[in-house]
Amino acid sequence: MEEIKALELKNVSYAYGRIPALREITLSVDKGPIGLLGPNGAGKSTLLRLLLGFLSLQKGEARVMGYDVAQETRRVRQIVGYMPEDESYIPGIDGVTLTALLGELAGMPRQEAMKRAHDVLFYVGLGESRYRLVDTYSKGMRQRLKLAQALVHDPQLLLLDEPTSGLDPQGREEILALIKDIAAHGVQVLVSSHILPDIEETCQEVIILHQGRLAAQGNLQQLKQLDFSLYELKLKGEAEGFLAKLQQQGCRLEKMEEGFWRLYLPSQLSARVIFKLAVEEKVQIRHFVRSQSRLEDLFAQVVGEEE
């Protein structure tokens, strides 16, 4: 039997009036946790809106857990848990009432929703505060409450928009631990975040959007290894010509502190090219270290290529 894909997008485009937000996005993700990355205006929020059916698809097809977003919007919303980025709550009620209400709206029987609300509030660490008015919660507590309400109906896919936003380091660690635990228990998780270490810590797959286009997508480890090699260099001599030739070869350079350079070498090029060009341009390489690429490097490389 064919395995259901968490996300499947074919030629998805969306524009706000004349301003394109997503352009011809085609991607497919089998399993999470999935990281959704991109600078501001990349189209991350628009993609989440489309997946939830908040926005109607203008072009293309989108499926969430096998369900067509355009045709089966209600079913999609039933199986998806959504944790929004901005502060959202219903004022004047306590945490357990809010969580149970949203469970009931998802289709749970009332008593089951209430029981489950207690469980998920304990799970996210709000057990002691579940009878307090949500208006009196701190920002960190509201962040946990948003996670609890997204989990109450036991979704198949969890969409988390900036889940650690506004949390202190300990709170951040706890939320990331919860996300990992949720993913380990078979819930597909899509984390949209601008905090790259959060993605690196929780996700195996990554989708990078830039200017509405799919800049990169795939397994995080493979992407980090295959697309480029990262080196740190320190040069002596007139380096302009050398650097220009490296760029002509498709390398990307970033100037660091104290005369160091970070070099993204495309996978099809060998490191020998660097030394060959250095000899040609009479430049001394005083420091040459291969770096372990981090998600920031991948992100910078991908976004840099697009620009």
Binding site: L52, F54, T73, R74, R75, R77, Q78, V80, G81, Y82, P84, D86, E87, S88, Y89, I90, P91, G92, L102, L105, A106, G107, Q149, A150
Partner: peptide, 18 residues
């Protein structure tokens, strides 16, 4: 007004609620 102010609409409409 309160739902608009406290962004509760996105919580409601993330459910199968039209």
């Amino acid at each position: 007004a309160d739902d608009l102010r406290f962004n509760a609409l996105q919580l409601y409409f993330a459910r199968p609620l039209r």
